[in-house]
Design a protein around this nucleic acid. Structure first.
Length: 418
DNA sequence: TCTGGGGTCCTAGGACCC
DNA sequence: TCTGGGGTCCTAGGACCC
């Protein structure tokens, strides 16, 4: 029996999250903005109808927003992550084998459901997720992840569910799907394919493997396999462990002093180190980068520096020292820095490290310190305690003017029923 | 004035080894 | 006069994803 893959995709996920608790937002146009309230990253259907594009800078549509009373939200990832967990947990009550692909998507193993029952099954799933979490979802079903993605595009258009299991039906859908809509085909590949008169997903499906290998490497080859119903991307039901951890931000106002940048790097490192410990990983390398405004190409400066740590570490103070040393290497005064970040790479499992932590007294004390600070943060929030002299400034410089409450993760911000 | 953040995978080519 | 070559590891950079 051929395996069947479902793809659940939460509709306009961030916007839908914002709609779960307030009662008055159901049919209003709504937009969620990126960090610093920079640009649109999620739009309700009503906002899409007003021609607000994905990634469009807020300043470009602020007047349309005012005119049509579009509700604007800063991104609230704490809320989204929690609702995402609830959606995934709900799906698991009906489908044991799922591959969580992103915050708002999961592939499902539906092989056990007979073809003729699959539509009803999906309807039940959709209703359950809506009822239990308040989040609307679309479901596409086919034989491979890539085809399930295609089915999901159809489902979105038809507002719901699309089962693509008949060969003729699959080809019919592929023939009217522009090739750029296919999962894994970005703008570069689209341009390349267009040059060779490959316009639709069906054209791509029929391309010889040898040809696609030459122009799109093994990636293209896999896409073609998958369009033909051959699995190239199996379901991964084990959560993959992270290979890198990155924290970066753009600044609302550019920074030029070493001290200011350094305080941000310090705050980023602290944040990244917390993630690292949560993942139970140690960093072996610390990469730091800074950039000026990419929209001003003339004076553009971007640079990064990687530090190889003496010993793998997950401990904030060591990592901060490394990042500060890295910053010194690449910082030049006189530039207006618009973005900076820190990246821990080549992570290893904390449990696999051989050396004894307790053989270094200094290190032992630092680990205790890190643990204590983590505890204080859990109790009093991230501003309760922090490293360095400037972090508070760093907190305030990230602008989120339209932030919604963390309804589900902070006691003080629970939704009120009046 | 104002333009996001966090990831993964693949490849080519250099370094190095025997 | 002759002047190797195969294998592996590492890294930077590209392309794509949500």
């Amino acid at each position: 029996m051929k395996s069947k893959v479902g793809l659940v995709d939460c509709n306009n996920f961030f916007v839908s999250c914002e709609r779960v608790f307030p009662p008055d937002l159901k049919e209003k146009p709504l937009v969620v903005l990126s960090n610093n309230d920079g640009c649109a990253i999620s739009r309700s259907n009503e906002a899409k109808a007003l021609n607000i594009r994905m990634g469009e800078p807020y300043f470009k549509f602020v007047s349309i927003a005012k005119k049509h009373d579009i509700k604007i939200f800063s991104s609230n990832f704490e809320l989204y992550a929690d609702l995402s967990r609830r959606v995934m947990a709900t799906i698991k009550t009906m489908v044991p084998l799922i591959n969580v692909y992103s915050i708002d998507e999961a592939f499902l193993d539906l092989s056990a459901i007979p073809d003729h029952k699959i539509e009803v099954f999906c309807q039940e799933l959709q209703e359950r997720v809506q009822q239990w979490t308040g989040i609307p979802i679309s479901i596409g079903v086919s034989y491979t992840k890539t085809l399930a993605k295609v089915a999901n595009i159809c489902a979105k258009r038809e507002k719901g569910i699309r089962i693509l299991l008949k060969e003729t039906e699959i080809d019919e859908v592929l023939s009217s799907l522009p090739v750029k809509e296919v999962w894994g085909v970005g703008h570069k590949y689209t341009a390349c394919l267009k040059n060779h008169h490959i316009e639709t997903a069906l054209d791509l499906k029929k391309v010889p493997l040898k040809w696609v290998r030459q122009f799109m490497s093994v990636i293209g080859e896999r896409i073609v396999w998958e369009l033909n119903g051959q699995v190239a991307y199996p379901l991964e039901t084990q959560e993959a462990s992270k290979k890198m951890i990155l924290v970066s931000r753009s600044f609302k106002k550019p920074l030029s002093s070493f001290e200011d940048l350094s305080s941000f790097i310090c705050a980023f490192t602290e944040k990244a180190a917390e993630k690292l410990r949560k993942e139970n990983k140690l960093a072996t390398h610390v990469y730091i980068f800074i950039k000026t405004d990419r929209f001003h190409q003339k004076e553009y400066y971007a640079n990064g520096y990687e530090i190889n740590l003496d010993r793998p570490s997950d401990e904030t103070l060591t990592l901060i020292r490394a990042s500060q040393a890295g910053l010194k290497k690449i910082f030049y005064p006189k530039h207006q820095y618009k973005k900076a970040g820190i990246c821990f790479t080549r992570l290893i499992d904390a449990s696999h490290v051989q050396y004894s932590l307790f053989s270094h007294p200094l290190e032992k004390r630092r680990i205790m310190l890190t643990k204590t600070i983590d505890q204080i943060k859990r109790k009093f929030g991230s501003k309760g305690i922090f490293y360095g002299d400037f972090s508070l400034k760093a907190f305030e410089l990230t602008q989120r003017e339209h932030l919604s409450p963390c309804y589900t993760t902070k006691w003080g911000q629970l939704a009120k029923v009046l």
